[in-house]
Design a protein around this nucleic acid. Sequence first.
DNA 1: AATTATTTTTAGGTAAATCTAAATAATTTA
DNA 2: TAAATTATTTAGATTTACCTAAAAATAATT
Lengths: 219, 219
Amino acid sequence: MNLTVAEENYIKAIFHLQQAEGNVSTNQLAASLNTKPASVTDMLKRLTHKNLLNYEPYQGVTLSKDGKKQALTIVRKHRLWEFFLVDKLQFGWDEVHEVAEELEHVRSKKLVDKLDAFLGHPKFDPHGDPIPDSNGIMATIRQFNLIDINPTAWVEVCSVGIQSAELLELLRHKNIGIGTIFQVIRKFDFDHSIEISIKNSKSLNISQQLAQALFVKLV
Amino acid sequence: MNLTVAEENYIKAIFHLQQAEGNVSTNQLAASLNTKPASVTDMLKRLTHKNLLNYEPYQGVTLSKDGKKQALTIVRKHRLWEFFLVDKLQFGWDEVHEVAEELEHVRSKKLVDKLDAFLGHPKFDPHGDPIPDSNGIMATIRQFNLIDINPTAWVEVCSVGIQSAELLELLRHKNIGIGTIFQVIRKFDFDHSIEISIKNSKSLNISQQLAQALFVKLV
DNA sequence: AATTATTTTTAGGTAAATCTAAATAATTTA
DNA sequence: TAAATTATTTAGATTTACCTAAAAATAATT
Ligand SMILES: [Mn+2]
Ligand SMILES: [Mn+2]
Ligand SMILES: [Mn+2]
Ligand SMILES: [Mn+2]
């Protein structure tokens, strides 16, 4: 069953929204897709008719088993292309989302799998989000917000909460990226800033705002 | 002025058809785009209104200056992606057209130019067709059909007239590809087959059908 | 030149994906 | 719990990109 670009965008949006909050509302979808609630209702009916959603009028939606499978192949394509753009074409990770938003709709199983192999079967995209494999299975690691980590713990940066150019600029300046390993040294109550020490390197200060944008795993 | 996928496909089809025969007819376009003449007329009006065509009812169309510029950026994208698929992802050149048909519509000047650089600014696609540069300029070499070359001439294969898997299979078997250099030794009147001799290698026979599918330049 | 055949356009219609405005359902507040 | 507010759906339009059937223009044949 072949989906249109619009249908795929809806499926993907529902997938992401339901991760965070279970049942997804019409208004949430309208906001996330930059469209109007009335348009969303139309589309929900169409996707329900195609058995991709569990939809109860006025009660919001979730993806059906089929819908979830579709969503995972779109997410896989999106993240593989993002990896390609950053790793091979030298895009900054703040520039790739828009382009990947189009590339994710190119239909060719062979293309995706060959791209995956060409890239060396990456497990995470440039923002640290896991890439589903061809069976829709993706790594799930226990992530914590840096703001919640206590001193002396060693951690590895595994994703970012925001993808702005400004964040990227700051991280580059501080020499921090996905995969960087460091130890939390101290937390300051006054401004909630954090002192960290990057593996064999000098220690540096992380502001509250920055800490809130960084997700790490314990190592 | 941003074109839809359908509009881009029309512009590109007109570009290719007018190369061969000047004014392009409604029926030619309908055949080439797998659609109906009535639909073509509709679209011709829309594209004319956007100043991309010179269209005189009942007299066929050609691209305007603007239309030609648009066409060249689409052709550039199509051929760069084909090169990418064959050179980096190991597709056979009979498999790439369909996928490139979708990839060519991804809108990002930056993407195209970075892809071009990543690929090493290739001048020809896997079928031997020239790739326009970012200004729309492409190499033009004087090509001849192998069937028209006379004995003792040295030639280099520069493109193929057909892109079938069957042709690719045969060429691989004979160890011939784009760039292969050989000498035409003899032509046989009975079956119009040709004896050729590949540079430092044994001589071999090319059937009439094969010769008609190969385009070469004199070296 | 008149007839026939072919090509192209027009007329009228459909499905997808959007919209605005109005109606209805659900939730919150007083 | 009744009224007010908010969320969602329905009704009715619009645009794009197609379609079929019929009319009109052009080209080819007697
Ligand atoms: Mn998208
Ligand atoms: Mn990402
Ligand atoms: Mn195309
Ligand atoms: Mn090609």
